[in-house]
Simulated assay, not measured.
Amino acid sequence: MPLFEEIDSQASPLGQISLRKRRMPAFGDRDIYEVKLGEEFLMSSMFVDAEEALSTLGLAAVEGDQLSVVVGGLGLGYTAVAALKDPRIAELLVVDAIETVIGWHQDERVPLGKILNADSRNRYILGSFFDLAVEPSTGFDPACSGKKFDAILLDIDHSPTEYLNSANASFYTTANLSLMAEQLKPGGVFAMWSQNLPEAPFEALLKTVFERVDAHVVSFYNPFQQDESTNSVYVCVKA
């Protein structure tokens, strides 16, 4: 069995995006999937703790049943699959701007595609999360303009100050976060992943929009560094 395989590589609006699979003998009999944009690593199935925690921590702050939830950023599907483990979820909209990434899941070229495709609660939405977020009159669901959601879970940029695309920077303002918050029901939750430890200026910005803001540090073992690594998840509750 080859130790490395490039499964697919396609042009996208953000640059060349590729899906790769590798095996590392030191880590045993497991396939490790990776997504790269140009020369930049976006996602690895070796480190998924924080992506899953985005769902578990975010949804833990939501009250009620029959939840309607948006996930911004499909990646390798770990945030979406973790969300669907919550039995209260009635519908999950997974928004991604790159058609190729959605196609990898629909065609089950990535391991979690089969789980997402088999769950009738899941729906893929092709579009820019950041464009849809600031248009509450139309919103995230093309089948229902102006729909409001119980939770919006975001994992696209590397952090609130390090962007996948420089155009995303304009989202992180009181005005645009407030437009996104209009798409949440009262008591709804916005949660966001970051590769960095919590940043006080961003917490202060979130507090200009949300009634409650909590920042969680998620630790996980990094075998490359043979040490603990950390990401963070911001969980914000609307009044």
Rank of each mutant, 00 (worst) to 15 (best):
L164Y: 10
L164G: 06
L84W: 02
V35T: 07
S55M: 05
D155I: 08
Q66V: 13
L153M: 04
A61E: 05
G75T: 06
W193N: 03
E99Q: 10
P111N: 14
H216E: 08
L54P: 00
E63I: 10
L206W: 05
N122G: 13
G72E: 02
A167V: 13
N122V: 13
K147H: 00
K147R: 02
F210G: 01
A133H: 03
E6P: 04
G127L: 05
R23Y: 12
G146K: 01
D65H: 14
L59M: 10
P160F: 08
F202V: 05
V209M: 04
G146Y: 00
F220C: 06
T230N: 11
V218C: 10
G187A: 09
Y172E: 08
K114F: 13
A143M: 06
L132D: 00
G139V: 00
D96W: 02
G77D: 09
D29Q: 12
Q10T: 04
R121N: 14
L154P: 00
D214N: 14
E108N: 02
P201K: 09
E182K: 01
F140I: 01
H158Y: 14
V217H: 02
E211S: 09
A143F: 09
R121I: 15
A133Q: 03
E135V: 13
V110S: 04
L37R: 06
S128V: 07
N231I: 05
N117G: 07
G28P: 04
N176K: 04
G103P: 09
P87A: 06
P160Q: 11
L57R: 02
D155K: 08
D49Q: 08
G187L: 07
T138C: 01
D86N: 05
T56P: 03
Q16A: 15
E203C: 13
A239L: 13
C144H: 05
S44P: 08
T161H: 15
L84G: 00
R22E: 07
F171P: 00
F224T: 11
V237P: 06
T138H: 02
P160N: 10
F129A: 01
D65R: 12
E6N: 06
G188M: 02
W104S: 03
R22H: 09
S170M: 13
V134M: 01
Q16H: 14
F220S: 03
S170Y: 14
Q66G: 10
K114N: 11
G188F: 03
D155N: 14
S194D: 07
H158L: 09
L59G: 01
F41T: 13
K207S: 12
K207V: 14
N117Q: 06
F140G: 00
L19S: 03
S229A: 11
S120E: 15
